[in-house]
Design a protein around this nucleic acid. Sequence first.
RNA 1: GUGGCUGUAGCUCAGUUGGUUAGAGCGAAGGAUUGUGGUUCCUUAGGCCGUGGGUUCGAUUCCCAUCAGCCACCCCA
Length: 413
Amino acid sequence: MKETIQNIKGTKDILPKESYLWLYIENYIHNHFSKFGYQEIRTPSFEKTDLFLRSIGQETDIVSKEMYSWIDQGNNKLTLRPELTASVVRSYIQHQMGKQNKLHKLYYLGSSYRRERPQKGRFRQFKQFGLEAFGSSLPEQDAEIIYMAYSLYKSLQIKNLRLKINSIGNRNSRKQYKIELQKYFTKFKNELTEASQKRLKINPLRILDTKVDFEVELVKNAPKIIDYLDLDDQKHLESVLYFLKDMNVPYILDPYLVRGLDYYSRTVFEIQTNTLGAQSALCGGGRYDYLVKDLGGQDTPAIGFAAGLERLIMALDMDIGNKNPDIYIVSIGDSALSYSFNLANSLREKDLIVLTETIGRSLKSQMKDANRLNASHVIIIGDDEIKSQMASVKNMTTGHQEDVSLSKIIDYF
RNA sequence: GUGGCUGUAGCUCAGUUGGUUAGAGCGAAGGAUUGUGGUUCCUUAGGCCGUGGGUUCGAUUCCCAUCAGCCACCCCA
């Protein structure tokens, strides 16, 4: 027996049953972001590996073990993008957008790739959408971005939304905080889990995310980043919170919220819901004031967020089906068949959904098919109809049927 | 990468304490109704019981491995 080829682990076919919902949501996202004056950017699915090494951070799991990387025939080190911010920043720098005007507001919607073990809400190819605002260091920009994310989910009626927000300060305060955190947890080093002992060396901020009971207790008494923020960072955070409150966006100030990627500074936030299993995050983002410069651009403040489309769709309580056909043309015989093709084409010019027969079924089967597809009308054309120049038009809901002259049938609909 | 659970028809699932031809519902195809759908009735098709190996006279059933799916850990959208 020939071996059949299957899709790759962690990837998924989106069949027509679901694809209508996907299309609807994608359009919804385009529309939502456009309302705020953000414009779409599309970047390639793969980039030079260096881009991700320099932006995401060498110590992160994404870079150290989850990237789909390869060397091509020209000896270039390439990688399928594991996220889109790096690509957007690369493009921003490359096209000198900062010189065109001071503020650039971009959104994106595209696939990302990470070689992780799949589970609920996590795939190896997944669609991310998100946005980036370049040029403003002001808290009102943070507030706008957070509002855009929150209102998207809110307007789609996602239940049990939790917006968590925190500030991780500037580079200096973060560095100082890291050292203090390391000091604190080192005192309990022998009690920590193996995982946390590793985190202690590599990224002590991660310990704050622990789910182990006794570590959660330790975290409660750990130093808080808020206490290490400098005056400007504090003011910035306060202003962001003020704007959110003013726009009626409920938030939870979570001093233990940290984000995985290296490039964040100051504001970080996450929107969660409880329908996604262990993957509670719908989206995550924050300010990254150093990244543009780190990647070789001008010193440019920026903030953005990334969200998972699969997770959004999973959290949705919505059923969008295919549009039902307006007309199903049942034809019997060769001359009727070619007549039906031309009739269908004319009707389609009126933006109607019109189906014709292409598999030589009996009248009865065609009627069954029309019924199954929920067509609202059926036009029946056979040799008799061609001779008499009259076709039968049946309303499938009422069952009512009448004869309509072929010359007037287009105006009938 | 680690762990747990699950793989039987297109779908949802039964079943075989190891023993001739593995079942149901839904769906599909055809018919009752030779040119009229939905309801009803009848008929039919569709299965290497995930794959490979082992034990056995005999394995879909027991054992091992493997692959896939789901879920969790790690990490993350």
